[in-house]
């Protein structure tokens, strides 16, 4: 970028990418802290180490686009614009949670921003994202549908069924594999017959690329091209986003399957926030003085979200009976 407006655009993009990464990190840190204090009911699947993937896509997505997510879904929800206080209250099982305390961490959803839900079933998001994409095309819209999933979910048969249909019907679905190397506790090498999953998906005839998923700029650049093609009428594409899961499968995982040294090395070498700070500083776009306030703001935002959520009301036990079926409508009946 050589022009002043180009410099400004780059600076704005870098600020957006870093702000979202540090917000996701701060949300997860605050949630883990509250989990440790006993305030999060049930398991918590933190996405620390994978923040660059949703953050890279966030500036490309509109409220009318759709996202389907996984059990590790807080980052996707924030990237799509969900409210952190409502999310935090949901983790705490409160009445003012984003899902009124009915879903919890693994089912966080915000339909008002097109976030069609985290999902407790691995590999369930493919069909839902593709169905939303079908709706987009039937309505003549130029929106897109993004399905996030882990490399563990690539072992599911639903991927084949849906990828086949998406290519046949040219649906605007961006498949984003968050390739963190583990299917819960099992290394990818024991879960998938190949490491070259982009090659696998290219076999369906969809553009497929492996990207460094710890590099928010690389994620953004790759997804920008694919999404622009889809908005212009193109079909599905696949990103193999390589990143790492710094925490266990969830907050109850003792991680007997890997050593502390492995995790320390990942934190030292593959932290997407640290890598971004170094890269943007080296490129002369952002300096520490630009990013430190974003860290502080994110930490303050998520602490405030947690505190406000902790002050929120518990649901009335009778609320358990609501939202099972739609409220009855008046119809002419025979």
């Amino acid at each position: 970028m050589t022009t002043a407006s180009g410099d400004n655009a780059a600076r704005a993009l870098h600020l957006d990418l870093y702000r979202m990464m540090t917000r996701i990190r701060a949300f997860e840190e605050a949630a883990l802290y509250e989990s440790g204090r006993g305030n999060v009911y049930g398991p918590l699947h933190a996405c620390i180490g994978q923040e660059a993937i949703p953050a890279g896509l966030a500036p490309l997505l509109r409220p009318t686009d759709y996202v389907t997510s996984t059990h590790r879904g807080h980052g996707h929800a924030l990237a799509k614009g969900a409210d952190p206080q409502g999310m935090m209250a949901e983790l705490f099982g409160r009445a003012d949670g984003i899902c009124r305390g009915k879903g919890g961490s693994q089912h966080i959803a915000d339909f008002s921003v097109g976030m069609l839900g985290a999902n407790g079933i691995v590999g369930a998001g493919y069909g839902i994202a593709a169905g939303a994409a079908l709706r987009i095309r039937q309505a003549g819209r130029d929106d897109v549908s993004v399905v996030f999933f882990g490399d563990g979910a690539m072992a599911r048969g639903t991927l084949h069924e849906v990828a086949n249909i998406c290519v046949l019907w040219k649906l605007p679905v961006l498949f984003v594999c968050e390739h963190n190397g583990f299917a819960q506790w099992v290394p990818s090498s024991e879960n998938l017959c190949t490491d070259a999953v982009a090659g696998l998906m290219a076999g369906y005839g969809m553009p497929s690329r492996q990207v460094d998923g710890t590099d928010a700029l690389a994620m953004h650049g790759c997804a920008a091209g694919f999404i622009a093609d889809m908005r212009a009428g193109g079909g599905p594409a696949f990103i193999d986003a390589r990143a790492n899961r710094f925490h266990g499968h969830n907050s109850m995982d003792a991680q007997a399957y890997r050593s502390r040294d492995d995790v320390s090395r990942l934190r030292a070498e593959a932290d997407p926030l640290a890598l971004f700070r170094a890269a943007t500083a080296a490129a002369g776009v952002l300096a520490a003085a630009d990013m430190d306030p974003l860290d502080a703001a994110a930490e303050a935002e998520m602490r405030a979200a947690a505190e406000a959520a902790l002050a929120g009301p518990w649901p009335d036990p009778a609320d358990a009976w609501e939202d099972i079926l739609a409220p009855r409508k008046a119809h002419a009946h025979g």
């Binding site: 759709y66 069909g127 169905g131 939303a132």
Partner: peptide
Amino acid sequence: GRLLQTPIAEAGFVGMGVGAALA
């Protein structure tokens, strides 16, 4: 254009039915 003949993929197309209904 409103009847979509699918491949033999019940999990796939019923999953898509869920997504299209949600959307």
